[in-house]
């Protein structure tokens, strides 16, 4: 059993990771689109990018909104293992998403083709990451208040 952690702290860390990296990648795709990096196939790039990060970001936003609406002020504690599993899987997933952009200049594979190909490994990884995040949030909701 890992050391218990504050649910609020864990949520903030996960949100920060997803929002910072997500925003960074979002800005990159926006700049690429504005500079015509994808030519007339800009839609293909967004069709790949949005489903890659939006489902998880939506989940996190949903949890944060529920927290804000909630009047409960007690500090809950959650098992550290679940948090670190969700955090590490999220970090690995986001790094691999970012690699798709940053490694392309060193390859001969066109960026859109690399995006398409990356679905092979990003799909299962996204499933695992979402599952671990879901497990963490469910556990966090049912956690006992701090004694």
């Amino acid at each position: 059993m890992s050391k218990p952690l504050s649910v609020q702290t864990c949520k903030k860390r996960l949100s920060a990771l997803w929002f910072l990296v997500g925003a960074f990648l979002f800005i990159i795709v926006v700049i690429q689109s504005m500079l015509d990096r994808y030519g007339d196939r800009v839609e293909d790039a967004w069709k790949w990018f949005l489903p890659t990060i939006m489902p998880t970001l939506s989940l996190i936003v949903g949890v944060l909104v529920i927290d804000i609406k909630s009047s409960e002020k007690v500090t809950k504690m959650v098992d550290g293992f679940l948090f670190w599993l969700a955090f590490c899987l999220s970090a690995i997933y986001l790094v691999i998403v970012a690699l798709t952009f940053f490694i392309q200049p060193f390859t001969t594979t066109p960026l859109l083709e690399l995006m398409h190909r990356s679905n092979l490994w990003l799909g299962p990884l996204q499933g695992l990451t979402s599952a671990s995040l879901g497990a963490f949030f469910v556990k966090a909701e049912s956690a006992d208040p701090k004694k």
Binding site: I28, I31, Q32, L35, D36, R37, Y38, G39, F101, F102, Q104, P105, F106, T107, T108, P110
Partner: peptide, 21 residues
């Protein structure tokens, strides 16, 4: 005939390859 990958790294060339078609 294909687009050539970066053979020598330079920040300018890298950013150009990242953001420009």
């Amino acid at each position: 005939q294909d687009a050539s990958p970066l053979s020598v790294f330079s920040l300018q060339a890298y950013l150009k390859a990242l953001f420009l078609a």
